[in-house]
Structures are given as C-alpha cells and as structure tokens.
C-alpha cells in the first residue's frame, strides 16, 4: 500500500496529465452527453451572455448590410402581394382556396420564428451557431433553421432558457435530405466533408437523374424538419462516381455562412403527432 502511495506521489504530474487528456478525449467522444451534463447548460448561458454583448457591437457595424438585406426582403414580399396580381375578368364564380386557413392555428403546420444570431463559426471542423432565442421564447429542439432568403442554415440541437445552439450545415454529423429542383428523381443526402465552408457534398444521387451545373438543390420535405422547397444551394461541380451508379456533386450553399445576422427557425406543429405514430409503428414491429 505504501508503495502505491509513493508511486502516485512520484508520478503525480504524469498521472494528472493522463487524467486531463482522458477527460478531454472523453468529452470529444461523448459530445452529446456533454450537453446533457449539468455544467454545460450553465456554460451555454454564460457564453451566450458574453456573445450577446459582443453581438451588439457587431450588429451596429453591420447595420448597413442588414438594411440592404431587409430592403431586398421587403421588395420580395411586396412583389408577392395579392394586389399585384389581377385575374382576367371571367363570368365564373371566384373559388376561394380550398385549404382552410385557421387563425387559431389548429390547421397550421409550419411556423416561422425569427431569431438573432448571437455567435457563429465557420472555421472549425464542427460548426455551430448560437441563437438569442430559447425555450422561454417557444423555440424547440430539432427545428430547422433558414436564412432570410430561404437558404437552409442548420438544425437546432440544444436549447437553454434564452439561447439555442444550431448545428450548422458545416458540421460532420449534419445530414439533411435534398432533391434537385428540376428533377424529383434526383434525391439524396447533403453532408459536409470538412474542407471548405460554403461548399457541401450532395451524395447518393442516381445517375439517371437529370443534373447539370447551376441547378438548384432544395429540401425534399420528407423529413419533419424542413418544409419542401427550402433552397440548400446550387450545383458547382458534378462528376459520375465510377464504383457506384451515383453522382458526386459539390454544391455551393445558398446561405452565406460568413455573415449570418438574422435567421428563422421553422416549427412543425405536426411533428409530435408524426413522431408518436412512428414510435407506435416501431414498437408494434418488435
């Protein structure tokens, strides 16, 4: 026993070093557990608060660009106003849209919630955004996040009271389903290879799909995270993969990850019901 203590005392520094290294590597490997740990939520609030202060200054410096962006948005919205469209006068009865529009929100599926980007990274191997909106402001986990021009940004992974962490598309675990806008047969998955920010890989697209450079890739709408038609990006480079029957496609993201200021989280009101149904089906099959 005495020898054990002597050993520990003699090699205390080395043992401490090993302990710290093991703890770090444990943190890296079990990233998701880290977030569920008690300390992480506190750290999230603290870093979020510091980020908010910094963001106030940063926002001020970017006012001009934000203004231009808003003007562009307004222009787009104005062009969608009903008074800009006129139906030719025909004798038939005007048929209102058959989809009931419910002001109480009973039939509503998607709701957009604006949020300010408090912090953002693009240079790391796993990139995250922090939004200044959290569970106290009705933001939930697993919501999709888009930029003001409908470009996909990422998915909310963690929510604290006033802040939310978004896994950006530039993350090794990010995997969303996309489809070619011009050809519904060209479905596949969007991943990031960890090299260039603003460039993603579009994989598992069959060669029978009609894809060419410059085509738009949009969300497929088959997952409960994003509605159909959110723009992921445009094809930058395309070449066939010889070993499989698929294309290897490189796409440029629609969202510019370098200067995200405001984003929209998309809440899916039907998600819970769908999840419950899937869960039920799964448990029955077992």
């Amino acid at each position: 026993m005495r020898n054990v203590f002597l050993f520990i005392r003699r090699y205390f520094n080395f043992l401490l070093f090993l302990l710290l290294q093991c703890f770090s590597i444990y943190l890296i490997i079990s990233y998701n557990k880290y977030h569920s740990a008690v300390g992480a939520a506190v750290m999230n609030e603290v870093t979020g608060k510091v980020n908010t202060q910094y963001n106030k200054i940063d926002n001020y410096l970017q006012l001009k660009r934000t203004n231009e962006q808003l003007a562009k948005d307004n222009e787009q919205l104005r062009n969608k106003l009903r008074q800009n469209f006129e139906n030719p006068d025909t004798a038939t009865r005007i048929v209102t849209d058959s989809i009931p529009f419910d002001t109480l929100g009973n039939k509503r599926k998607w709701e957009y919630q604006s949020a300010k980007v408090v912090s953002n990274s693009v240079t790391a191997q796993n990139n995250f955004l922090v939004l200044g909106r959290g569970s106290a402001q009705q933001l939930n986990k697993d919501e999709g996040v888009i930029d003001p021009n409908n470009g996909v940004v990422g998915i909310v992974t963690e929510v604290s009271e006033n802040f939310a962490v978004v896994m950006s598309l530039l993350h090794k675990d990010s995997r969303i389903s996309g489809v070619l806008k011009n050809d519904a047969n060209g479905g596949g998955s969007i991943i990031w290879d960890g090299k260039e920010p603003n460039y993603l890989s579009f994989i598992n697209v069959r060669q029978s799909a009609k894809a060419k450079k410059g085509d738009t890739v949009i969300t497929s709408g088959i997952t409960p995270t994003f509605p159909y038609g959110m723009i992921i990006g445009t094809i930058d480079e395309i070449r066939p993969d010889k070993s499989t029957n698929n294309f290897i496609i490189k796409i440029k993201t629609a969202a510019n990850f370098y200067n995200l200021q405001y984003v929209y989280a998309i809440k899916n009101y039907q998600r819970e019901e769908i999840d419950r149904l899937v869960e039920k089906a799964k448990s029955r099959n077992q």
């Binding site: 520094n13 080395f14 070093f17 710290l20 290294q21 703890f23 770090s24 590597i25 444990y26 943190l27 890296i28 490997i29 990233y31 880290y34 992480a40 750290m43 999230n44 603290v46 870093t47 510091v50 980020n51 912090s119 990274s121 790391a124 191997q125 796993n126 995250f128 922090v130 962490v165």
Partner: peptide
C-alpha cells in the same frame, strides 16, 4: 475556449499537453 466554440475537449486536450 471549447465552451465558446461548442466543441468540447479539443482545445482542453491540446492545452494540457503543452502545459505538461
């Protein structure tokens, strides 16, 4: 720094290595 960047462990490991 890891807490700010939401990538737990990476910088902590590198820093404790050079401190050792």
């Amino acid at each position: 720094l890891d807490s700010f960047r939401h990538s737990p462990g990476f910088h902590a490991a590198a820093c404790s290595l050079i401190a050792y």
